[in-house]
Amino acid sequence: MELWEELGAMRSLCEGPWVVCGDFNTTRFPSEKINCIRLSRAMIDLSSCINELELIDPPLFGGSYTWRGGENHRNASRIDRFLYSFPWDDMFLQIRQCTLPSLGSDHNPIVLICGNKAFRRSYFKFEKWWLNVEGFKSKVHEWWSSFEVSGRPDYKLATKLRLLKIKLKEWSRENRGNWKARKEQILSQIGDMEVTQESRSLTDDEQILKVHLAMEYEEVAKN
Rank of each mutant, 00 (worst) to 15 (best):
S138P: 01
E127N: 09
H141Q: 15
E219V: 07
I208H: 15
D45N: 13
P30S: 03
R78Q: 05
A9D: 08
S40D: 05
E134S: 15
L202M: 04
M10V: 14
F124G: 12
V220I: 15
V149Y: 10
E54G: 02
S40K: 09
V220W: 03
E6S: 05
E134T: 08
I208C: 06
R200C: 04
F124P: 09
G63V: 00
G177Q: 06
A221R: 10
W179T: 13
R96E: 08
N25I: 05
M1I: 07
W88T: 07
R74E: 14
P101T: 00
S201K: 13
A158V: 02
N72A: 15
P30D: 01
L161G: 10
R38T: 13
L93I: 12
P17I: 08
E71N: 13
Q207R: 15
P101S: 00
A158C: 04
L100C: 04
L157K: 14
S47L: 02
I79T: 01
Y217R: 03
E198T: 14
F119L: 12
G135T: 11
D192S: 09
W144I: 14
V149D: 03
A76K: 11
T203V: 06
T203C: 03
E216Q: 09
K125H: 11
N132W: 04
I50H: 00
E6I: 10
V140F: 12
N35T: 06
R173H: 06
W171H: 05
F124V: 06
S64Q: 10
K139F: 06
Q94G: 02
S199D: 15
L187W: 02
N132H: 07
E198Y: 00
C114S: 08
C36T: 08
F86Q: 14
N132I: 03
W171D: 02
P109K: 12
L209M: 08
T203W: 04
S146M: 04
A158D: 09
N35K: 11
S47H: 02
Q94V: 10
K165V: 11
N51F: 10
S188C: 11
A158T: 03
S40C: 09
R200L: 05
N35D: 13
D154L: 13
G135V: 08
W67H: 09
R176V: 07
I56Y: 05
S102F: 00
I190K: 00
G191A: 04
V195R: 11
F124Y: 15
S150K: 14
N51C: 11
G191Y: 01
S150W: 08
V133R: 10
Q185W: 09
I186N: 00
K156L: 11
R28K: 13
G191L: 01
S172M: 02
P58K: 02
N223P: 01
F61C: 10
E219W: 07
L164G: 11
L3Q: 05
N35L: 04
L53W: 02
Y84K: 07
K210L: 00
N178K: 12
E52L: 13
E219G: 05
S188P: 00
R182C: 04
C21F: 12
I166G: 09
S105V: 06
L55I: 12
M43V: 08
A42T: 05
W143M: 12
S199W: 11
R11N: 00
R74A: 15
D57L: 04
E127G: 06
V133M: 07
R176G: 14
E206T: 00
N132V: 05
